[in-house]
Design a protein around this nucleic acid. Structure first.
Lengths: 212, 212
DNA sequence: GCAATCATACATTCATGTATGTATAATCAA
DNA sequence: TTGATTATACATACATGAATGTATGATTGC
């Protein structure tokens, strides 16, 4: 019983990635063996080694299925020309929160990335790319808030660097805590409320002004 | 060359825990072998198996050196009798941020706990206890904010549950992001500013009021 | 016929746990 | 005080299992 059509091969590849999400989420990345994934997917390790180089490569491919559509979304949001950059940023985040709550792939992959794997060099070039992605993300957020200051949406003496770090910590912390306890609150509704309050406080609170 | 005095034995035990912090932080918990820790500490695995049952037990003891003094601090803050519970909470968090930036043990253990280990059952009863600690923590935060509402420090229609989740996500996200990039901002100064702005926004923002 | 898509079999490495050895400190008897 | 005894604090050696990577085999589409 050996599948041969290219369609069927892609099917098993996707099934392997689906299963990897599940097993990684349950047992953690480093604790799961390739035999675990293979048996859970109803195949043997031979199938895995045919489609992927090793566990790191499989992990990488699993992340790509989430990262690629996510990059399209954030890239699609025209950053400089938009009238209200803060509202656009909040809208993007709201979409992410919505995606994580409704798309099981997003949910599991983020769960694995945040709580079920160790960000050390053993994962190969994954950590490096994550660092680069984070730098890109930081620059993008920085531009958005600077843009908001220039447009008068935020006070002129806003401490943009502080705001950027606060936003990254808050938005990520909300997602991360929800993944740990999905029943604690409604990520889409309440997460958006939290960040909306944060956006509001940028205008009202003196704590975000530059230190004299 | 075999040490024998109880003093020397405690010395090697502490040295093992110190080394475990370093190696765990560098290679991740599951990727480090007991031989790694032993050789880095200048002993053999025999020393580890004498002082600890296995890697999970060693990990547990490493966490205890941080958890125990931390519990003393939070327990020492009288919760119900304090005049301004929000200020006391902020003070506690500021102390934690201060500790993490100045005490290398706190820094490394939190780094390991947040970014260098997988919270799965393979760590034994550690995950269960972490869940219990989180529940206790949630209850404590809940009491603090409810107390603040009753004392009129926060609006009467404050959505306490939402505030609790927001505080936990924010305060933890700040710490976690700083651990990933310690150079991004000053945790003690800026982290406190961020949470102070959050506390302020609880009074001013409508987003934290209960939904009609 | 060949090449793709797996399954199977095998060799290697490696971490763990335990068993044993050993030298010294602590304890105690005389 | 001293010598013998015992438990301590490790080091060393060994057995086991398990995961990996690869090599090879088998089957089928093209």
């Amino acid at each position: 019983m050996v599948r041969k059509t290219r369609e069927a091969a892609l099917e098993t590849r996707n099934a392997l990635l689906d299963t990897a999400e599940l097993v990684f989420s349950e047992k953690g990345v480093s604790a799961t063996t390739l035999a675990d994934i293979a048996s859970a997917a109803g195949v043997t390790r031979g199938a895995i080694y045919w489609h992927f180089k090793n566990k790191a490569d499989l992990f990488d491919a699993m992340c790509d299925r989430v990262r690629l559509p996510l990059e399209e979304i954030t890239a699609a949001s025209a950053e400089d020309e938009v009238a209200d950059p803060l509202a656009a940023l909040l809208g993007n985040l709201e979409y992410l929160y919505h995606k994580v709550t409704t798309d099981e792939h997003f949910y599991r992959v983020f769960d694995v990335l945040f709580n079920k794997c160790e960000f050390v060099d053993s994962l190969g070039p994954i950590v490096e790319r994550d660092t680069r992605v984070r730098e890109q993300f930081r620059l993008r957020i920085q531009r958005i808030f600077s843009n908001a200051v220039q447009r008068g949406l935020l006070p002129a003496d806003t401490d943009v660097a502080l705001v950027v770090n606060a936003y990254m910590a808050y938005s990520k912390g909300i997602l991360r805590n929800w993944l740990l306890e999905p029943g604690a609150f409604d990520l889409h509704r309440d997460g958006t409320r939290m960040v909306a309050a944060f956006m509001e406080s940028l205008r009202t609170s003196d704590a975000f002004r530059q230190l004299g």
